[in-house]
Amino acid sequence: MPVARFLVVFDADSTLIRNEVIELIADEAGRGAEVAAATEAAMRGEVDFATSLRSRVEQLRGVPVSGFARVLERIEPTPGVRELIAAIHERGGIAAVVSGGFHEILDTVAPSLDVDVWRANRLSVENGVLSGVVDGVIVDAAGKAAALREWAAQYGVPLSRTIAIGDGANDLQMMDAAGLGLAFNAKPAVRAQADLVVGPVDLAEVIALLP
């Protein structure tokens, strides 16, 4: 495994991309509004993330896997994301994504944006439709922080040379573990605890902060 100069770990929903993927999937079941309200509460830190995710995923029961194609068509990369990832690579860094969202979407989106490594939750599927449960261990706030530490060790990067970028309460542990925690497009509680707040919704603003 080559040693990298530094590591940048992104949250996915509302950070790497403009969307909240679980809301797009819920739209396929006609339950987008209810799931959007629950997602907002979770991102503000008002409810436990894992508990909230399980209840929201229950609302996805019965959505056909074929609906993922429509979800992918609606994904909007955040302005500046391609420029930032290109700059990370030009300077010898690794671009990583850890998400409370889903591999079923991120496995297409991440490589399309030239992300090096990523981790997310998986949705259980039975007979071509979602069963309404998360398959395996949930990637929560602790899981995000663990992923950052694991990737830093894997690529030989000291934690002091890691950057974490997120918007929600479940990103705070990851941001705290990193050498630099950036609040991007973030909820008030996250902006209050971050090392720096990126104001414009343009990830190219982060390029100036790279090592």
Rank of each mutant, 00 (worst) to 15 (best):
R5H: 14
R82W: 04
T78Q: 11
I75L: 11
R44A: 13
L180H: 02
V206C: 13
L148K: 00
R74W: 05
F10D: 04
D135Y: 04
P111G: 04
I17T: 13
A194I: 06
L106A: 08
N170S: 10
E23T: 13
R122C: 05
P64G: 10
E23K: 01
A142T: 13
V8T: 11
D135Q: 14
T51D: 15
G30H: 09
A152Q: 03
V63I: 12
I88M: 11
R74H: 07
R54V: 14
I138T: 12
L209K: 04
A95R: 07
R122Q: 09
M43T: 05
S99V: 03
I94N: 03
N19Q: 07
M43S: 04
A164T: 06
A50E: 15
Q154M: 11
L72C: 08
A26L: 10
R122W: 01
G45P: 04
R31G: 04
I207L: 12
L7A: 08
P64D: 14
T162W: 03
R44S: 06
E150K: 02
G100Q: 09
D27K: 10
V190H: 02
R74M: 14
V21H: 02
S160F: 02
D176W: 05
D202P: 11
P79Y: 10
E34L: 13
V201I: 15
R5G: 00
V8I: 15
L196F: 02
A177R: 01
S66H: 07
V139A: 05
V81E: 04
V21G: 04
R149I: 04
V206R: 05
E205L: 08
T39K: 01
R44I: 08
S112T: 07
G132P: 06
R70G: 15
G136Y: 12
E20I: 09
P77V: 12
V125C: 01
L123T: 02
T51P: 00
A29Y: 09
D202A: 11
N170I: 12
R161T: 07
G143H: 11
S160L: 07
V98Q: 03
R161E: 15
A169Y: 08
G181Y: 02
I163T: 05
L53Q: 03
A69D: 14
I17V: 15
G168K: 02
N185G: 14
V8K: 03
G179R: 04
I22F: 01
A26Q: 07
V206W: 01
A147E: 14
G156M: 12
E76A: 14
A41P: 05
L209M: 13
W118R: 03
T162V: 12
V157R: 06
E40C: 00
V65N: 06
D202S: 10
R5P: 00
D107R: 15
A36W: 04
N127T: 01
L196D: 00
G32P: 09
D48E: 14
N185D: 11
